[in-house]
């Protein structure tokens, strides 16, 4: 069900700083909200987003329950070489979702 939505430019000039936008469907349940019986709904959040560029980590975010539902994270990276950007979201139980996006870098 959880399908990430990621924007990476398909092509970029070598050395250009590109903006990457990521969205993933997730309730980011804080652990502070009671259900209708007054019991706290257990915390269920994505705690980490990692971006690897041709295998090398270029960005990592640690997320707390204060991040809005369906987390949106945008950041930048330098277009160094043609290859693949891999995104990995991990929840507190270790469950993860991945997405890959190709990028072509031209001189």
């Amino acid at each position: 069900m959880t399908r990430p939505l990621v924007h990476v430019p398909a092509t970029a000039r070598k050395g250009a700083v590109i903006t990457i936008k990521t969205l993933i469907a997730h309730p980011m349940e804080t652990g502070y909200r009671p259900d209708e019986n007054g019991r706290l709904i257990p915390r269920d959040i994505i705690g980490e987003l990692v971006c690897r560029y041709n295998g090398k980590e270029v960005f990592r975010a640690e997320l707390a329950p204060a991040i809005a539902a369906n987390p949106y994270v945008a950041f930048t990276t330098v277009a160094t070489e043609t290859g693949t950007l891999e995104f990995r979201w991990t929840d507190l139980t270790g469950k993860h979702w991945t997405h890959t996006a190709p990028i072509t870098v031209v001189a």
Binding site: Y53, F59, A61, E62, Y72, T80
Partner: peptide, 23 residues
């Protein structure tokens, strides 16, 4: 709780610039 997020960057980011949405 007081933490919102920590974003780890480095020279490969090109710019120090992050955007997110918070509660």
């Amino acid at each position: 709780q007081p933490q919102v997020a920590v974003f780890h960057l480095g020279p490969r980011a090109g710019r120090a610039e992050v955007t997110t949405r918070v509660r």
